[in-house]
Design a binder for these strands. Structure first.
Length: 473
RNA sequence: GGCCCGUUCGUCUAUCGGUUAGGACACCAGGUUUUCAACCUGGGAAGAGGGGUUCGACUCCCCUACGGGCUGCCA
């Protein structure tokens, strides 16, 4: 037996509520948890916080799992349903009641609400102090009750946060929170603490909207004598205007980003850099992120979404991706964006053209637009800009080009030599001839190199398209 | 209202008492170029405001302003 200390395995979790799509901010929270755990040989767990039966839906849960899968964040084991654990939550509540760290409160919600309103109106503290905190059980009425934490009223609760530092909350600012409702179901405050404890979560990395609540949760840990996890409250993501990210900013759901055609690797890179930095590193791989990611590098201020930067990173990731990996991503994008799938022929030609296509696109739609020459069938219909390049003089040049290319060797160099020669005969530069050539081959003005297109298209198709264009009116 | 968190170029950030405050994206100018993209060179661009502490503050403390969060028998 080795006497080396066994390092505590790290366990993180992502705990979304299944009440809608996966928010881009939630995706980043999940990413941070995933990076932290996976980078240290730990576990990354998933828990569905579905205790709000009114708003939770199976569709939303499915969308969240799908989103995480697309982003490439794999979790350990089966997702835990919080609702399914309600008996365990109630059991802990009973235990605290028995220990005297909790008590029954018979106040009605209407009474409490009336109290709060009056307090607000008079400018007094709205903290509710239940009269049942120290009541004699003999005086208990036979009425529904909630269970409240018998929270300390003096001293302070300290949150030792890996991102925010030590945050100190005076206990007289906190009320005796309800953690078991009068119908016996747990509130979020209880459920989250019991679940994190039972699941062995060592590091709670979540949005800083939970920071203040953490003091309350800490009190439950103390009441149960459980070890408190390491907290890391990360700032939320804001819209480009600096306001809290909401639907009016446009894309807030992760699936929106997939539908816009950004590769998952680019989004991981971008999201990781949003609020976290490793020196001057901007473009990095998953392996590097895994190696570098640390809680200490997380900033404390909310970050704004910057689509230009995302686009730039996306372009770099598309260019760096292996062709074999890119193709399935592009096909998944077509499904996500509700666009027609590739035919076998298009797919084969796309594979051939990918090396030159991937270097010039910032997103999949842009790549596909530049691949239009592969997708189109004869006769290729030029768009407005391309049609302008096919004026009568240009069409004449194309007609001259056909016999020359007929006899040219079908290599990049030979084609370039032939076209340059024809251009010179007309007293033109290569650029002047490339424009109509491009329009004829692709029906577009933004494409890969004309020579690359000719190679992929092949002699027969190339000449057919040139002949088509030369004969247009 | 009370409590808590935050504030460096337009944006993401580096800096962890001593720097001409660095990088990236974006932008502008020039170059390269068969289009697009890419690439090369150069440029403008920042410590919210006010007090302290210190030989010296972006960095530490206080106040103000602004932004955000919590203050639920929502999560």
């Amino acid at each position: 037996m080795s006497d080396a200390p066994t390092p505590t395995p790290i366990v993180t979790r992502f705990a979304p509520s299944p009440t809608g799509y996966l928010h881009i901010g939630g995706a980043r929270t999940a990413l941070f948890n995933w990076l932290y755990a996976r980078g240290r040989g730990g576990k990354f767990l998933l828990r569905i916080e579905d205790t709000d039966r009114e708003r939770s839906t199976p569709e939303a849960e499915a969308a969240i799992l799908k989103g995480l899968t697309w982003l490439g964040l794999d979790w350990d084991g089966e997702p835990v349903s919080q609702f399914a654990r309600k008996d365990r939550h109630a059991e802990v509540a009973r235990q605290m009641l028995a220990q005297g760290t909790a008590y029954k409160c018979f106040c009605t919600q209407a009474d409490i609400e009336a109290f709060r309103e009056a307090a607000r109106a008079e400018g007094r503290s709205t903290l509710f102090r239940s009269p049942w905190r120290d009541a004699d059980p003999a005086t208990f009425p036979d009425l529904p009750y909630v269970i409240r934490l018998k929270a300390p009223r003096e001293g302070q609760t300290v949150i030792r946060d890996a991102v925010q530092g030590d945050v100190i909350i005076a206990n007289d600012q906190l009320d005796d929170m309800v953690f078991l409702r009068n119908d016996g179901t747990p509130t979020y405050m209880l459920a989250v603490v019991v679940d994190d404890h039972d699941m062995g979560v060592t590091h709670v990395i979540r949005g800083d909207d939970h920071l203040t609540n953490t003091a309350r949760q800490t009190q439950i840990y103390h009441a149960m004598g459980w070890p408190v996890p390491v907290w890391a409250h990360i700032p939320l993501i804001h819209g480009p205007d600096g306001r809290k990210l909401s639907k009016r900013h446009g894309a807030v759901g992760l699936q929106d980003y997939q539908a816009m055609g950004y590769p998952a690797a680019a989004l991981r890179n971008y999201l990781a850099r949003l609020g976290w930095a490793h020196g001057d590193a901007e473009f990095f791989t998953d392996d590097q992120a895994l190696e570098w990611f640390d809680l200490s590098g997380i900033g404390r201020a909310p970050a704004r979404l910057d689509f230009k930067k995302l686009e730039n990173l996306s372009g770099q990731h598309i260019a760096a991706a292996a062709d074999a990996a890119l193709l399935p991503e592009i096909e998944a994008f077509l499904v996500a964006a509700d666009r027609p799938a590739l035919t076998i022929g298009q797919r084969n030609r796309l594979v051939e053209a990918l090396p030159s296509l991937k270097e010039r696109a910032k997103s999949f739609p842009e790549l596909l637009e530049k691949a239009h020459f592969l997708m189109a069938d004869r006769p290729v219909e030029p768009d407005e800009a391309a049609a302008k390049a096919l004026d009568p003089v240009s069409r004449g040049i194309l007609a001259n080009l056909v016999p020359r290319l007929q006899n040219a060797g079908w290599t990049r160099d030979a084609l370039e030599a032939a076209v340059t020669e024809v251009a010179a005969e007309h007293g033109l530069g290569l650029g002047k001839v490339a424009a109509p050539l491009r329009a004829a081959l692709a029906g577009r003005t933004a494409t890969p190199s004309v020579f690359d297109m000719m190679i992929v298209l092949g002699r027969e198709e190339t000449l057919a398209r040139l002949t088509d264009a030369a004969g247009r009116d």
